[in-house]
Design a binder for these strands. Sequence first.
DNA 1: TTCTTTTTTTCGAGGCTCGAAAAAATGAGC
DNA 2: GCTCATTTTTTCGAGCCTCGAAAAAAAGAA
Lengths: 415, 415
Amino acid sequence: MTTGIRHDEMRKRNRALVIAAVRRADQPSRTEIARLTGLSHSTISAIASDLIEEGIMREIGQGEAAPARRGRPQVALGLDPEAATVVCLHLSFNSLSAVLVDYCGRVIDTGTHHLSTLALSRQALLDAAVSAVREIACGREGFLRIAFAVQGITDAAGRQMLWSPITPHSDIAFGPELEAAFGVPVTVQNDCNMIAAALRWRNPERYRDNFIALLLSQGIGMGLMLNGQLFTGTHSSAGEFGHMIHRPDGALCRCGRRGCIEAYAGNYAIWRKAHGKSAMEKPIADIKAGEMEALAATARRGDGPARQAFREAAEAIGIGIGSLFALIDPAPVAMVGQGTAAFDILEPEIRAALAQTAGGQHADDVSFETWPDEVPFIQQGCAMTALTGLDWEVFGPGLRPGAGGRKPEDGRVVA
Amino acid sequence: MTTGIRHDEMRKRNRALVIAAVRRADQPSRTEIARLTGLSHSTISAIASDLIEEGIMREIGQGEAAPARRGRPQVALGLDPEAATVVCLHLSFNSLSAVLVDYCGRVIDTGTHHLSTLALSRQALLDAAVSAVREIACGREGFLRIAFAVQGITDAAGRQMLWSPITPHSDIAFGPELEAAFGVPVTVQNDCNMIAAALRWRNPERYRDNFIALLLSQGIGMGLMLNGQLFTGTHSSAGEFGHMIHRPDGALCRCGRRGCIEAYAGNYAIWRKAHGKSAMEKPIADIKAGEMEALAATARRGDGPARQAFREAAEAIGIGIGSLFALIDPAPVAMVGQGTAAFDILEPEIRAALAQTAGGQHADDVSFETWPDEVPFIQQGCAMTALTGLDWEVFGPGLRPGAGGRKPEDGRVVA
DNA sequence: TTCTTTTTTTCGAGGCTCGAAAAAATGAGC
DNA sequence: GCTCATTTTTTCGAGCCTCGAAAAAAAGAA
């Protein structure tokens, strides 16, 4: 907060706060909103009637579980699903999926396209994104946002994809391209960050201020929530857990460097090791889930190269988590993705490695949760990102006149 | 911002904002404050006259560099040095220093005590802190805060020291003890975090939102600024860069584990290696600066064990920075402390190691700044932490009546 | 039908920031 | 030395916003 608060801003923020409360809570009454926000009943009443009149919120009669108490019954409030729609895109290896979501977060329609991401030109990828949006939104009244999740590194501003294992091209400006095509704000974000956003949304009890989402699949991705905010770096989406160095001058990584965690724990690394190949052998782009499952089955049967491969993967992950914990303290970890299918093999070794690190002092206390399918998380993360963006940037401020206002100039105040 | 804004809060925050602007800028006029904060002249005028009346601010006549323009001359404003004083404590190996600072941040008095921290009992350490404060504040009107910097791990709440290499005792509750003794708020913080705070204060151009302060000395400490905020973990001060794993099952660290960065880059590690000792030999608590300087001189003369020791230290630091950059993106780095005396030897090797990592893609662009003496930074960081704490928590809110106000209850709104 | 209880709305009070205008304080020009 | 121009600071009324208290609304209980 480096800038002064003016009067209109107070209203805007309190409006946004009410919207956020309604989105979070399950059809709260005005009284409950007052309790959640700390604002007075009168204020909530005023803001609510504004929002209802503007078609952002609506009354939903008595809440389901009407407690049939005495007194005047509470009137449940909910966001108006027709207030807006948003489009979520998800680009991953050989696949591009689109989802249309209403203002309440309910899925209206979905569509998936298969394409050869490694072979497509830069322009073909951009075109594919545009036509996926066009197809899902076809004939429907205008959507207000696009949230685009990509498997790869994005820039911190959420404008483009900087690098991805799914295509040889870099710096693909999906943001500007889609904005030009549809005239709505677009955010481009790392898929793992969307997973983290979804986890927080689904289970704020467990995933609140500091937690880690690890995506175990061909590569190793991470979404990091610090102090309740998705962590991104100065330039990029950052959080490249998979490319922290596990063993200096170690195994060859997909990124071309050596010794990265991913070079031990990615699918290709496990496959390479289990098949007795050299650690310097060029990584394979895509190893099928079935093949990994077969390796896991072999490993479960007893010691051998497969078992050793998973052991090394677990060690890399465990030590990496330990180093991360040294930096940010132990925090809940969610493991997501196909790689979690072998988590029964990995877990003991991960814990053993973690226990050797400073961050893993209480390795037994660290709890892992696993989810084999990352796709629903990515989709929900995109949806909630786009919708809460609308809440705070569009419907909170509203479009009342006189919203100009001054901005403080350079040399901002540092607190 | 999970809670609604009420009217009085708006004033409080704008007041605090004005105070912050005056602290930041060099004796700004009301007009300049308006520009910096984005608030209107009328508001600044009103707030300024309040603050002056309350003895928090004062007019300082014309600013030094009076530009002698036409019009009514600006009236420079400054914080009233007599508005408050704060005490800064700094506990490190065998040393406890205290500084009394006025509300403008000027040092009023300093004092240093030598003590055998490794030998003292828990209570003796607590007593030493209390008497250091008593001595520095003796006879002077009451100070309003104590900021305590310790070499070691503190808890995230800033209440106590959890662990430190300077004493065998753990969980020493300096915060409660000092608060009980003096009845003022106390914050206990990691010394490296204070270094980071000071860097930001001294050079916000370079050290603004994301940067790293590394303390190279007996051990390796880090202060991490992320998104303009000092990073602390959920439980502890975190940021234990020195205990990230450099080589699994590697050299013995002071913390009892193996392969930590510190076990290669701390003074004891360099000394151990340079003297041809085993990497598993028990670390030495304190190696004198002169001895390290001698080792560096030997290393400068040519290849040999000393040179190799510095080389391994640099590699550990470089790869560690690379892993950190993979997580948070490249950021400015400040190296502080006695260990920087050998930075001429370390730098090329650090850059070489960094260049091999994913985070060090543009290793040549990364800039390092070195400062051999960490003490002034720690002191200034403490002072600014205590003073800005006063600004926002005491003088901003003020003590006008009716400040009660409601608080939102549980189930806070998640944005 | 009346009383009790709870939710929601209404209404006036009090605060805050803002813009415009006035006041203050100086240099420039003659 | 006086007046005018220029810039800073203060004053003042308008417009919002939130708040508390009271009123209104909407039910169950008796």
